[in-house]
Computed example of a mutant assay.
Amino acid sequence: MTDTRQPVVFIHGLWLHATSWQPWIDLFESAGYAPIAPGWPGIPDTVKGARDNPESIADHGIDDVTKHYAAIIETLPQPPILIGHSFGGMIAEKLLGENRAAAAIGIDAAQIKGVLPLPLSALRATLPVFKNPANRHRAVSLTADQFRYAFGNALTPDESDALYEQWVIPAPGKPLFEAAAANFSAHSPAAVETGNNDRGPLLLVMGGRDHTVPEAVTKATFKQYRDSTAVTELLEFPDRGHSLTIDAGWRGVAEACLSWLGRKTE
């Protein structure tokens, strides 16, 4: 029997394993969707496997990841809804701009080409990668303290440390170097078709206390879409940090996304 449910593809960002989406998958499945959460190219299927094999994760850039998910989308019975966090949010924006999706939600999405603000907190959060130029071709791990600053600053130390132990994996440095150079490159992989009038609706979600993708970045991203007549909306969770998809408050974010999709895609 053909599955007629609307596909949803969850796209993780740097340092979180794809299995961190499991609570979202369960919620969206109960709401009648057909959700999946494939990992980035080269990332093993388990957190332990990813931690044990960082070399398989290294040196994958934005174009590699975009093509990887585009190939997955081609296997689906209809264009999916894309929901991405951090760099996964940027990938979702790129694929939506290419008309490969019915709609997209970018949660604390990484900055795209054309976005200029670079807050100090974002520099500090990404310093573990940028402190060594050779990290462009490596997979880089975070310490628990670095994760607490970049992701868990709005949480108790105990909750942040527990999330670190449960979900954190090494991440390729290449996408960060590509995004940092985006505004100096004519053909940057961080470019998005923000002027597309024919794409599906887009929701940008931001955490007001996010150190890694501060609200100034998300608001500047929103402005990049000002020349498009397609639906583009902004939603803020003022007291949340970069961990908002995996911490104890994840359900409130997920239910807000479900509510928005119900209004914009039915």
Rank of each mutant, 00 (worst) to 15 (best):
I57E: 04
A216N: 03
I72G: 01
I36A: 10
N196T: 04
G195L: 09
A71C: 00
H60Y: 14
D227Y: 11
G207L: 05
F28W: 14
G88D: 01
L142K: 01
R100T: 00
I91T: 13
I105L: 14
G241F: 00
G249L: 06
P172V: 11
P7H: 09
A180M: 15
R251S: 13
T265L: 14
R263N: 13
D198T: 12
K67C: 02
H12R: 15
T4H: 13
P77Q: 10
S121E: 09
P44R: 13
L27I: 12
V231I: 15
T75G: 07
C257D: 08
T143S: 15
V205T: 06
N135T: 10
E98Q: 15
A58Q: 09
M90C: 03
A182Y: 04
R251Q: 14
T75Y: 07
Y69L: 00
A122Q: 04
L176M: 14
K174Q: 13
A191C: 09
Y69E: 00
E55S: 15
A104F: 07
N53Q: 15
I73Y: 01
A58R: 05
L176D: 01
Q6M: 12
V231F: 11
D158P: 04
H85S: 08
L16A: 07
F28C: 06
Q146M: 02
G84E: 03
G200R: 05
G249E: 05
V205M: 08
F28M: 13
A125G: 02
A34M: 11
R199K: 14
F28H: 08
E193H: 13
W24G: 06
P41D: 07
P133I: 11
F222N: 00
I246F: 10
T19L: 14
G13A: 05
H242D: 06
S228N: 08
P35G: 11
A102C: 13
S160K: 04
G195W: 02
W21S: 01
P128V: 07
L116F: 08
L142P: 02
K131H: 10
Q6P: 08
T245Y: 04
R240G: 02
V140A: 05
W40I: 03
G252F: 07
T66R: 12
A190L: 05
W167V: 05
F237N: 01
S188Q: 09
G49Q: 07
K223M: 10
Y33I: 11
S188T: 12
G49S: 10
Y149G: 04
P38T: 08
V8H: 02
G97I: 06
I62G: 08
F222T: 00
Q224R: 15
I25G: 04
P175I: 07
G262H: 13
S188G: 11
P80I: 09
T229E: 10
L27W: 11
L116V: 15
G89V: 03
S259T: 15
G89H: 05
P175V: 01
A122Y: 00
I57V: 14
L142F: 14
T221D: 06
S160R: 05
H68T: 00
D227L: 12
G152Y: 06
R124P: 01
